[in-house]
């Protein structure tokens, strides 16, 4: 047994166990109301996720941040249960027409849970009552330990990073190995390279389809739809069409050498045609897209990744690649056997 097969399986096992069992950090799921006017008393009902409001009651505090460093503290907090509190804020005047206030809820057990742009405060009348305080940022900190970050909208689906994104990256790595082998076939005319190229490309197609499927499920839970007109989704789908055409081309030619030559040529030519689809269109600055990574890499949209996610994400990419390589080597062996059989006949 080769070491990389074992490593691939171990990494995938780790990814599945850690990816599904590591809990999320405490977060704020919902606040209501979501808008208010300045110079008023605001009674805010705050719904937490994975929080311990009841247990951490003694040290509970809530802040609304109005600008970069100033905010107002909740005057009274009523704890309903572990995940529900009601906080009363005396909101003073604001400088601009409106302010999107970020909400922080802090206690000893959960540390800080926050919700960016939780509530929109619009300007209302008298502008003399600036009752702002400095927010004690030294007291606010993220809960330590191996926990995945909480993001509103994404919620628990953040775990799909390890499958959806990792599948695409592993698919690319497999495609490049497939292309390399295709090119080697054209140079050497050794049929083993064709078996390898087709095996790597086929498993990459499977990964691509799985990537589309996991992305579609993700879109259903975050954007509310299985499929959108989003450029990145559609370009990915077209690329899959190209590779399905490759599979059909292979199936339609009987002669082994001819099939090897034609499919290697088509895969190289098609990959060049895919460059604008995958690397130019999605990165254009004026493209409107819901998908993360606008104007940059769609897979590694910087701000959404943190170190705990990376500790599972990179093993997922490597594990999926090694697993795909394993499947491809088995398929290569089968292809080689078929080839030998056809030579004997």
């Amino acid at each position: 047994m080769s070491w990389w097969k074992l490593l691939g399986v171990l990494l995938l096992t780790y990814v599945i166990i850690a990816g599904f069992t590591v809990p999320l950090k405490p977060g704020i799921a919902l606040v209501s109301p979501q808008s208010t006017a300045s110079n008023s008393t605001l009674k805010l009902s705050i719904e937490g996720y994975n929080t311990h409001f009841e247990s951490g009651k003694q040290s509970l505090e809530a802040w609304l941040r109005l600008d970069s460093i100033h905010g107002v503290q909740a005057s009274t907090i009523t704890v309903k249960n572990e995940n529900l509190i009601e906080a009363t804020f005396a909101v003073g005047s604001i400088e601009n027409e409106f302010a999107d206030a970020t909400l922080y809820v802090n206690n000893n057990i959960d540390k800080t849970a926050f919700l960016p742009s939780a509530i929109r405060i619009t300007k209302n009348g008298d502008e003399s009552n600036f009752s702002k305080q400095l927010i004690p940022f030294d007291r606010l900190s993220s809960k330590p330990g191996f926990l995945f970050p909480y993001r509103e909208i994404l919620n628990e689906t953040i775990r799909n990073t390890f499958f959806h994104v990792a599948l695409w990256m592993a698919m690319f790595a497999l495609l490049i190995v497939g292309l390399y082998n295709g090119f080697q076939y054209l140079r050497t005319k050794d049929i083993i390279y064709d078996s390898r190229a087709s095996s790597f490309n086929m498993i990459a197609i499977v990964y691509g389809l799985l990537g589309l499927a996991t992305g579609s499920i993700w879109a259903r839970y975050t954007w509310g739809t299985w499929w959108t007109t989003d450029i990145k989704l559609n370009m990915a789908a077209i690329s899959m069409l190209i590779y399905v055409a490759y599979a059909i081309l292979r199936a339609s030619v009987d002669d082994i050498d001819k099939r090897a030559r034609l499919s290697a040529l088509y895969s190289l030519f098609a990959f060049a045609a895919m460059i604008p689809l995958l690397f130019v269109f999605p990165r254009m600055a004026n493209v409107i897209s819901l998908h993360p990574g606008n104007g940059g890499n769609p897979a590694l949209g910087g701000e959404d990744m943190d170190n705990t996610l990376r500790m599972v994400f990179y093993p997922a990419v490597i594990g999926l690649f090694l697993f795909g390589r394993w499947i491809a080597t088995i398929r290569t062996r089968i292809e080689t056997l078929f080839y030998k059989k056809s030579q004997l006949e």
Binding site: L241, A245, L249, S252, V253, D254, K258, F269, A270, A273
Partner: peptide, 16 residues
């Protein structure tokens, strides 16, 4: 070079 020239031509070219 394939058996179904016309279909294959459409299939290979349109996505590209």
């Amino acid at each position: 070079h394939t058996q179904i020239k016309h279909t294959m031509m459409t299939l290979l070219s349109l996505p590209l």
